[in-house]
C-alpha cells in the first residue's frame, strides 16, 4: 500500500497492489480532485500534456454541475480522474 496525502491528513488516497485480483473499471466511473487554485490547475494540466496523456476537456458527466474549469485524464489502470477548479 502506498499512502498519499493532500497535505493535512495522514492520507487521502491509498494505492493498493494485490498480487492476484484482476482490476477493471466496471464499478467506478471516476473520482474528482479539486485543485487548490488556478495555478495548481494549470500545473497539473501542463504536466498531463507534457506526459502525453490524452486530456478530455470539460466535466466527464454532462449532468455534473458546472465548475470554473475541468478536464479528465486516465491513470495507468485506466481509472478516470477528473481535475476541477471550483467556482
Amino acid at each position: 500500500m502506498n499512502f498519499l496525502s493532500f497535505g493535512h491528513y495522514h492520507h487521502d488516497m491509498c494505492l493498493v497492489l494485490h498480487r492476484s485480483l484482476q482490476l477493471d473499471n466496471n464499478s467506478m466511473l471516476s473520482f474528482t480532485l479539486a485543485m487548490r487554485d488556478g495555478q495548481a490547475f494549470d500545473t497539473v494540466l501542463s504536466r498531463a500534456k507534457s506526459m502525453g496523456l490524452a486530456v478530455r476537456e470539460g466535466r466527464l458527466l454532462a449532468s455534473a454541475k458546472p465548475v470554473a474549469r475541468a478536464f479528465s485524464i486516465q491513470d495507468p489502470d485506466r481509472h478516470w480522474i477528473e481535475i476541477i477548479l471550483e467556482n
Binding site: F6, D12, M28, L29, F31, L33, A34, A40, V44
Partner: peptide
C-alpha cells in the same frame, strides 16, 4: 510542499 490538490470533489460509482 503544499499539495496541488485541495480535496476530493466527487466519486462516481456504478
Amino acid at each position: 510542499k503544499p499539495s496541488l490538490v485541495g480535496h476530493f470533489g466527487q466519486l462516481a460509482v456504478y
